[in-house]
Amino acid sequence: MILTYGAFILLGLIWGSNFIYMKWATALISPEQIVLLRVFFGFLPLAFAAWRKGAIDRSQLRHLPHFLAMASVATALYYFAIVKGTALLPSGIAGVLGGSIALFTAISSLVFLRTEKLNRLMALGVALGFAGIVMIARPWEGASNRIDPMGVFWMLSGAVILGLSYVYVRRFLSPLNLPPLALVTWQMGLALFILLLVTNLTGIGRITQNTHAAIGLVIGLGVLGTGTAFLLYYQLLEKLGAVAASGATYITPVVALLIGWINGEDVGILELAAVILILGSIAMLQLGRQRSVQETCSSPKI
């Protein structure tokens, strides 16, 4: 159990550090190139693990349209959106906004799946989450605002994309009972193929001009932040369950903000308050969803 909770903390640290690696890389190469390299180096450990465990077989080819949908939208487009957002924002702010994924996942499941009923706790969680986002975006500051609204737009777009992908997985992929490792390996492999077709590789070698940026992208963002993070997450799913495993998202915004502060980014009361609101939002949404499920199960059947 100690190893399991160690993996839980490690996952939160890995996710939280992703934003500074993206920030370093955006100074040298394009967002498309960053996503391509991230997916390539993230795919390698996943493909190796899938091969060792025999998770991939030919019978899964009949689900190729679903794999392609997840690869193009939930991987390539999602990663592109958060890199674009991180390029325009301080890495810590990007990390805090990245923590809103749980908010949009909950909203998407409520709107499209209708398997849960909105209760007061969940409604309060949604309100707190949006309050935290507004506090980060600071629209009242107008032209003097140091927070680029397009950066906020791209980060929230990524959160919405991932929230909607959760609905897609629940509707179309969960009933197939595929091994999670197989699903994510197909998803990453096909995303890599798509990105190779559409990415302009001109100047991609500039990433080697900065050793920190190159190592951060290849090892930090690719091997650890993508491939290893997926493997850790699915291990935690098996050991702790979905709700507990998703709790690593509590660590992510705090780690991202702390790393940004260490790297000289301004972290003030507004940023700290926004983190508290967003984390409170995630907690209330999870508690509210558990309560909704309990109420549904305990309601009398007619």
Results as ranks from 00 to 15, higher is better:
3 L>E: 04
3 L>N: 06
4 T>A: 14
5 Y>E: 12
6 G>R: 03
9 I>C: 07
11 L>M: 05
14 I>Y: 09
15 W>H: 08
16 G>L: 07
19 F>S: 13
23 K>P: 14
24 W>F: 13
27 A>C: 10
35 V>Q: 03
36 L>Y: 10
37 L>C: 09
44 L>S: 00
44 L>N: 00
44 L>P: 00
47 A>V: 15
48 F>L: 12
50 A>L: 08
51 W>P: 02
55 A>Y: 06
57 D>C: 02
61 L>I: 15
64 L>Q: 07
64 L>E: 08
69 A>L: 06
70 M>R: 01
77 L>C: 00
79 Y>A: 11
81 A>P: 03
82 I>D: 12
83 V>M: 10
83 V>G: 12
83 V>N: 13
84 K>E: 11
86 T>I: 13
87 A>S: 12
87 A>D: 11
88 L>A: 10
88 L>M: 12
90 P>A: 07
90 P>N: 11
91 S>C: 08
93 I>R: 10
98 G>A: 09
98 G>P: 06
100 S>P: 03
102 A>F: 04
105 T>F: 02
106 A>R: 00
107 I>A: 06
111 V>M: 09
116 E>L: 12
116 E>G: 07
121 L>H: 00
130 F>T: 04
131 A>I: 11
132 G>T: 14
134 V>D: 07
134 V>H: 09
136 I>W: 01
137 A>D: 00
138 R>D: 00
138 R>S: 02
142 G>P: 01
147 I>H: 08
147 I>A: 07
151 G>T: 11
154 W>N: 12
156 L>V: 15
161 I>K: 04
162 L>F: 15
167 V>D: 02
168 Y>A: 04
168 Y>Q: 05
169 V>W: 11
169 V>N: 11
170 R>L: 15
171 R>M: 03
172 F>T: 01
181 L>G: 12
183 L>F: 05
186 W>C: 02
191 A>S: 11
192 L>Y: 00
193 F>W: 01
196 L>T: 02
200 N>Y: 05
204 I>H: 11
207 I>F: 08
208 T>E: 13
209 Q>M: 12
210 N>Y: 10
212 H>V: 10
218 V>I: 12
219 I>P: 04
221 L>E: 15
226 T>V: 04
229 A>M: 05
230 F>V: 14
231 L>W: 01
233 Y>T: 11
234 Y>P: 05
235 Q>T: 08
240 L>V: 01
246 S>L: 02
247 G>C: 09
252 T>G: 02
259 I>A: 08
260 G>C: 07
262 I>A: 01
262 I>T: 01
263 N>F: 00
264 G>R: 14
264 G>F: 00
266 D>C: 03
266 D>M: 04
271 E>A: 06
273 A>K: 04
276 I>M: 10
276 I>Y: 03
280 G>R: 07
284 M>T: 07
285 L>P: 06
294 Q>E: 12
295 E>M: 12
299 S>V: 12
299 S>M: 13
299 S>A: 15
